[in-house]
């Protein structure tokens, strides 16, 4: 089955991973800007990172007929440094018109601090003003619940924000309902130990239905599994869900969400009429 990984950090992966993803049915991916595992020392460090996201990764993906899209922002962790963050925010607009850039993300909270909230709000403001889509990172473990609720409270301050163009990522059992009932998209991240398993992701699809739900690997430099979405596909099959239902979550939903970005020029793979039934 063809699928699209809506959240994966390919800069942290080797070229072999692109090849493996292509062999497993992945046809494209979206890569949010995130923390590199260390704090960058200057705005120029971010400019180089944004060039890697917009210039080199699409090229590497194309070697395996994969279509690579990306998001630009200052991430939640480095947002703790407010002055550096504001310098980085000034860089964002020059990248938003580059091919394959889908919007501003992944912004959000990490430890739910006042500085993180300040920089989150400034980036939502920018996205709102420039009519860009937004991809949001929610905190991990004991901070996830409070952080997700804080994020939703802050978004409430933007009265005319189109909720259908905002994706709140890394939802789990205790946060997914709050996100969906406000009309946002919700991303379930399959990640060893700290986030969600394929079986629990299927539980959430059964509980809430497939509408506005996405599933991703968030593969990065940590112990993560770039091929986690195929694990979810298999878990859905073993639970008896139809190919059409699975395809809705792993292929049609991401395309529906990303199609709202002006730079999402996706060329769907050719599917012979009967082959995918």
């Amino acid at each position: 089955m063809y699928y699209f990984d809506p959240h994966i950090h390919m800069v942290s992966r080797v070229t072999d991973d692109y090849e493996t993803l292509a062999k497993m049915g992945c046809v494209g991916m979206s890569e949010p800007a995130f923390w590199a595992g260390f704090d960058r020392g200057s705005p120029e460090g971010f400019r180089d990172y944004f060039r890697q996201l917009t210039e080199f990764e699409p090229k590497r993906a194309a070697w395996y007929h994969l279509q690579h899209f990306t998001w630009i922002c200052i991430n939640a962790k480095e947002a703790e440094n407010v002055s550096l963050s504001r310098e980085v925010i000034k860089l964002i607009p020059e990248f938003l018109d580059k091919p394959g850039v889908l919007g501003i993300g992944e912004i959000g909270l990490n430890k739910n601090t006042p500085n993180e909230s300040t920089i989150f709000m400034e980036q939502v403001e920018l996205a709102d003003r420039l009519d860009e889509q937004i991809l949001i990172h929610t905190p991990h473990l004991e901070d996830k619940y409070m952080g997700t609720r804080m994020i939703l409270d802050m978004l409430d301050d933007f009265a005319d924000l189109d909720h259908g163009r905002v994706l709140v990522d890394h939802v789990e059992e205790h946060t997914v309902r709050h996100v969906l009932e406000r009309g946002y998209w919700a991303g379930m991240t399959l990640y060893p130990v700290s986030k969600c398993t394929p079986e629990r992701a299927v539980d959430m699809v059964e509980h809430y239905g497939p509408e506005r739900l996405l599933v991703n690997s968030a593969g990065d430099w940590g112990p993560s599994k770039p091929t986690a979405v195929p694990d979810f596909i298999l878990a859905m099959r073993r639970r008896g869900h139809s190919e059409a239902e699975i395809r809705r979550v792993v292929y049609e939903n991401p395309l529906e969400f990303f199609s709202q970005s002006r730079n999402f020029e996706f060329r769907p793979p050719e599917v012979p009429a009967e082959a995918d039934k």
Binding site: L141, E142, D143, K144, Y145, M146, E172, E173, H174, D203
Partner: peptide, 14 residues
């Protein structure tokens, strides 16, 4: 809703 309630046990309250 056990999974949701276990999550909340391990969460800082809102």
């Amino acid at each position: 809703d056990r999974a949701e309630r276990v999550q909340l046990v391990f969460s800082r309250p809102y």
